[in-house]
Design a protein around this nucleic acid. Structure first.
Length: 608
DNA sequence: TCTTGCGAGTAA
DNA sequence: TACTCGCAAGAC
């Protein structure tokens, strides 16, 4: 008797058996079906059809409906889903739905595809990873050359954002005409399924899209190109929390095809790959890039009026403005609140619920927690040492923006918020690192980073790398060799700054790599972040102990376990903690364990 | 005694 | 995940 195995978008790594009923002729691996599931009805994906000889009909429920006339996923994508569920600790169903979850259930099947039968993939017999490290414009030209070099096959070209993908789609549609298709998650549903079916049936396509296009069902993919692979948009935020570059690399090895990753700046992992000779590389020589300078910030050097600037910064700013040059100001702190700190003992006023430093209200009379929204009165005395010197003048973007407008009423000052439309008529633009996106759009003459340490003091193992890569990206994006990047800092002697000022990346990378190796951090060892739901501390402690006992029992060597981050919101929080394994471990084991304690697991999160 | 909120269990 | 069940504390 035929039994249909179905997987669901639920954190249960199990297949569920159903009777095909009258749908037997229409059921294939890779079609979606509607089935009874407990008291609910659910949509699942058929993962296999098996034969059971002595099956008892009444042990099974029957399929209620079949949605697709052809499989939406081929064997290669099933294998990819298997990889994703193992590496990122999700169920197979969650991985499958990550690929096709956005497709509509009801749609009309284009008649032109009806007579075709599924073609087999044609494998190329080589596989290699390339890094293209070039300025934006040059990279995009190289991509065209790569596309032209591919004969008889499809190419996947991924971009971090919808808008960039659309822009490139427009550009190359002029050259390659109707071979080019666009696929991303913001397309209307009917368009999504139309393109999906086109990718299944048509050959020789140039598929432009965002991370979801990495799951294209095209059967004849010959090359995958990922633009700016370091971009955090390539990390999925929902389970399975996959990384597009890793997924693409797996797919390329499977298909034996080359992978190209284009970057404006190189990450630690890529640097290691280069050193090991794992990648071929086309390097940009770094000439004609802006220079980086540090400016020492101390109580003596800051300006009396604009206390977030050192006086030297102000003279350069004014000089630039008088020459009609454009200025970009980066700051890593949103809003207008002052961040509190005791100047004597460095006490940071942690919230007693969330443990994150609290901020001072505008009137200075109370403390606010930006996570749980707790408000407590503030008596301007440090509870740790009793000092009255509390409340450092560190401003958020909003405050700096307002002060600058007051101080320079004759200049056009704009506050940049992500996704905002900008026109050319500004002199100063201020914002968080999102401003990076428009550095290449206009000609900037000066870039100011208000406080380098505000990027570095993030309690994250990779904060220095993120800062370093960001600065190198800025250098690469800014199309003006005369431009200067100023970093205001209290510690100009830090190695990161030296490497940037001297334009010597090797110092930074080799030092950073040796630290990572010593402490078992990526790229040498994976970090496993485990988040446990629930607010009660003792429940969390129990579950944590369960995990740690299990790991001990299995004989895995933990390099590090902890710290515990308390829930962020009162009533609905999630406890987090981190694990780093010294050796290999069985991912299936950890997955089972995670399901047992109702935890979500993430591999090498961008932010801890 | 009725209401509500949470934790545990389970889905074929 | 999304749902139900059952228990137990709080409202009246």
């Amino acid at each position: 008797m035929k039994i249909v195995e179905v997987a669901f978008d639920i954190p249960v790594d199990r297949k569920f058996d159903y009777l095909p009923g009258k749908f037997l002729q229409r059921i294939y691996k890779g079609v979606r079906v509607r089935v009874p599931f407990g008291r609910q009805k659910k949509v699942g994906i058929v993962v296999s059809i098996k034969d059971i000889e002595h099956a008892n009909r009444s042990d099974y429920k029957s399929i209620l409906a079949v949605y697709d006339t052809t499989p939406l996923l081929n064997d290669e994508l099933f294998e990819l889903a298997g990889f994703i569920s193992e590496r990122y600790f999700s169920s197979l169903g969650q991985a499958l739905f990550a690929m096709i979850g956005g497709l509509p259930l009801k749609y009309s099947y284009p008649p032109e595809y009806s007579s075709e039968d599924g073609a087999h993939s044609i494998f190329q017999n080589y596989s290699k990873k390339y890094l293209v490290f070039l300025k934006d414009e040059k990279r995009k030209k190289i991509y065209i050359r790569i596309i032209q070099s591919v004969k008889d096959g499809s190419i996947l070209l991924l971009f971090p954002e919808v808008s960039i993908a659309e822009e490139y789609y427009e550009q190359i549609s002029d050259i390659f005409r109707d071979r080019v298709v666009l696929f991303h998650s913001e397309l209307p549903k009917n368009e999504k399924i139309r393109i999906w079916l086109k990718m299944i049936h048509r050959k020789g396509l140039i598929i432009i899209g965002t991370r979801i296009a990495g799951f294209s069902p095209a059967q004849d993919i010959k090359t995958i190109i990922i633009d700016r692979g370091n971009d955090s948009a390539y990390s999925e935020q929902q389970t399975p929390k996959y990384n597009t570059c890793e997924v693409a690399e797996f797919r390329c090895r499977l298909l034996k095809i080359p992978l190209f990753i284009g970057e404006a700046a190189i990450s630690i992992k890529e640097y290691l790959d280069i050193q090991k000779g794992n990648v071929s590389i086309e390097l940009f020589n770094g000439e004609g890039q802006p220079s980086v300078h540090t400016i020492f910030m101390s109580r003596k050097t800051v300006d009396k009026e604009l206390s977030f600037f050192v006086t030297d910064t102000i003279s350069m700013l004014e000089e630039t403005l008088l020459r009609k040059g454009k200025v970009a100001i980066f700051h890593n702190r949103k809003g207008s609140s002052k961040i509190l700190r005791c100047e004597k003992c460095e006490y940071k006023f942690p919230c007693n619920i969330c443990n994150y430093p609290m901020t001072l209200s505008d009137d200075g009379k109370s403390l606010l927690c930006r996570f749980c929204k707790t408000i407590i009165p503030f008596d301007k005395i440090c509870p740790s040492c009793g000092s009255k010197k509390v409340g450092e003048r560190v401003y958020g973007i909003e405050k700096i923006f307002r002060r600058l407008k007051e101080y320079y009423p004759d200049f056009r000052i704009v506050k940049f918020i992500g996704g905002m439309e900008i026109t050319d008529d500004f002199d100063i633009i201020i914002g968080t690192s999102a401003v990076k996106k428009i550095l290449g759009t206009y000609k900037f003459s000066l870039v100011i980073i208000i406080n380098g340490e505000s990027f570095l003091n993030i309690p994250d193992y990779n904060s220095e790398e993120i800062f370093f890569v960001m600065l190198n990206e800025m250098k690469s994006i800014i199309d003006n060799p005369e431009c200067k990047i100023l970093i205001q800092t209290r510690s100009p002697n830090l190695e990161v700054y030296k490497a940037l000022v001297e334009n010597n990346s090797d110092i930074f990378y080799s030092r950073e790599l040796s630290i990572r190796k010593q402490l078992c951090y990526p790229p040498f060892s994976d970090i496993i972040k485990i988040e446990i739901k629930g607010t009660k501390k003792d429940v969390f402690e129990d579950k944590k102990r369960l995990i740690e006992d299990y790991i001990k029992e299995k004989g895995y060597d933990l390099f590090y376990s902890g710290p515990s981050f308390p829930p962020v919101k009162r009533g609905k929080g999630v406890w987090k903690y981190l694990l780093r394994f010294k050796d290999e471990f069985d991912r299936q084991d950890i997955k089972k364990l995670a399901y047992e304690v109702d935890a979500t697991v993430e591999v090498n999160p961008d932010r801890i």
